[in-house]
Design a protein around this nucleic acid. Structure first.
Length: 476
DNA sequence: GCATGATCATGC
DNA sequence: GCATGATCATGC
């Protein structure tokens, strides 16, 4: 199946314009015509497109309506059929954002139709409302920019999307898991975390929007099918960068096992070996302090030697980042774990929902590759652990950490010259026992500016070593 | 001995 | 030149 049906050949465009530019009743006879029409919206802002003045107030979800009505001349429907019924194509208008390093990501998850527990329970994947409505998608991306009026935002790219076979295996398994929840009368216990690509996100006017479920008197939160933003990001990356992703698993393996199980199986044979034995067995050359040693170990072990970890499909699609952990004989890491450097201007302005911390830790799964030193300082491979921060930790400890950094930055960081270096009053390792702020740069002269004009040695988000030790034990 | 400030090395 | 994984080193 060809899943990228991006039409770059515009040779038909002239011929088609005559048919396509019509009144409200126009029809799009082929997917290609539809895509050509979609591309006419590129580089136009919503303000330019919106002829019914729907953007008066910036209510959510209105972007899709503007495109449907004003650009395609279709009436808005919210029934169970795809938007372009005859073609079986559902239209989705969704934001992308540019990251600090220049790459693009989905700004948010892609919300699809609401799950009616009362109707979905006796369906198969093929007869489900998800599949009926979202089998083929016309994705139109607009570029989100902070603090820019909705009417100024522009459509930048459109694609027709059909699921690659490998992804469909996982999407189907996610659907089946969801279906089991409903059939076992557990719809009220659904959470997003345990789903891989397709997950049931909450949707409603507020968190009190509840729905009946067929096999339990307890009402369940109203939820909609959604693609996790990491999955959507992988679609965007593949669209922008032409570099294809490499799968380490075969379709057969994906059918039988989750990515987590597959990873565990692949790493299992090496548990208990020293790092050098692992390297020898895999034919990876160790150069001491060679930064790329662990990544090349991982890619070799997964059978995709030479592939950058960013290009491994399963990692990209599930947004899995790896981290090496070196434990001391007592089970505690010697060092704290660092993440990205703090952009203080960003922190000072952003809301919690737009913050780097919130987004990064609610979307990222970590593959911890754990080594442990014995008393003789030999380094042994202990195993792997796939981990994601608990929602509760995000809402309490991580939020407090973010709020404190923000408070201190906005009040003006107190910098104090000490015997050794310059100290500050950003949250330290005793703040809440989990996270702290610490410098990370080339040296103490490697500085960035603060919103109040002061300069500070580059600072970084860190996990306390104790927190890492605890989460590896499953106690967060 | 831990907390915290500093810095090195590598890869892009 | 910069980001990032890794680690050092001082002083309380």
């Amino acid at each position: 199946m060809q899943h990228w049906s991006v039409l770059e050949s515009m040779s038909h465009l002239k011929i088609m314009e005559g048919n396509v530019k019509g009144g409200i009743d126009m029809k799009y006879e082929t997917a290609e015509q539809l895509l050509i029409k979609a591309k006419e919206a590129h580089n136009k802002s919503f303000g330019e497109i919106d002829c019914n003045n729907r953007l008066r107030k910036s209510q959510k979800g209105v972007f899709g309506h503007v495109i449907e009505e004003s650009h395609f001349g279709y009436e808005i429907n919210s029934n169970s059929e795809p938007d372009f019924k005859d073609l079986g194509i559902e239209l989705k208008v969704t934001p992308i954002k540019q990251n600090r390093n220049g790459s693009y990501s989905a700004k948010e998850r892609l919300v699809l139709n609401i799950i009616n527990y009362m109707e979905e329970y006796d369906k198969t994947f093929e007869t489900s409302s998800f599949w009926k409505k979202n089998q083929k998608l016309l994705l139109m991306f607009y570029k989100w920019l902070p603090k820019v009026e909705p009417r100024e935002l522009k459509i930048v790219q459109s694609i027709l999307y059909e699921y690659p076979e490998e992804d469909l295996i996982i999407i189907k398994r996610d659907w089946e898991k969801l279906s089991r929840y409903i059939n076992e009368g557990k719809a009220h216990l659904l959470t997003e975390k345990e789903f891989e690509y397709l997950s049931p996100c909450t949707k409603g006017a507020n968190k009190n929007s509840m729905r009946e479920q067929p096999f339990n008197v307890l009402k369940a939160k109203q939820r909609a099918y959604s693609f996790k933003s990491s999955y959507l990001t992988s679609i965007i990356r593949e669209m922008v960068e032409s570099e294809p992703l490499t799968y380490f698993s075969t379709k057969q393996e994906l059918k039988q096992k989750t990515i987590e199980q597959l990873l565990e199986e692949k790493f299992e044979p090496y548990i208990g070996m020293t790092r050098d034995e692992m390297a020898a067995k895999l034919g990876v050359t160790i150069t001491p302090k060679h930064k790329s040693f662990i990544p090349s170990l991982i890619s070799t072990l997964l059978g995709v030697k030479g592939t950058k970890l960013d290009s491994i499909a399963e990692f990209e699609k599930a947004n899995i980042q790896f981290k090496t952990v070196r434990l001391q004989p007592n089970g505690k890491p010697k060092e704290s774990m660092s993440f990205v450097n703090i952009d203080f201007h960003e922190v000072a302005q952003e809301s919690w929902e737009d913050s780097f911390l919130y987004n990064y830790f609610s979307e990222t799964k970590f593959l911890f590759v754990v080594f442990q030193y014995d008393e003789q300082e030999n380094l042994y491979f202990k195993g792997i652990q796939l981990w994601q921060m608990l929602e509760q930790t995000i809402e309490t400890d991580l939020f407090a950490y973010w709020a404190e950094i923000r408070r201190v930055v906005n009040a003006g960081i107190k910098l104090e010259k000490k015997k050794r270096g310059i100290s500050n009053n950003l949250p330290g390792s005793k703040f809440n026992g989990k996270f702290h702020v610490r410098p990370k740069g080339k040296d103490s002269n490697d500085k960035v500016s603060l919103p109040d004009g002061q300069m500070i040695t580059k600072q970084c988000y860190w996990f306390n070593a104790d927190y890492v030790a605890n989460l590896l034990k499953g106690e967060e």
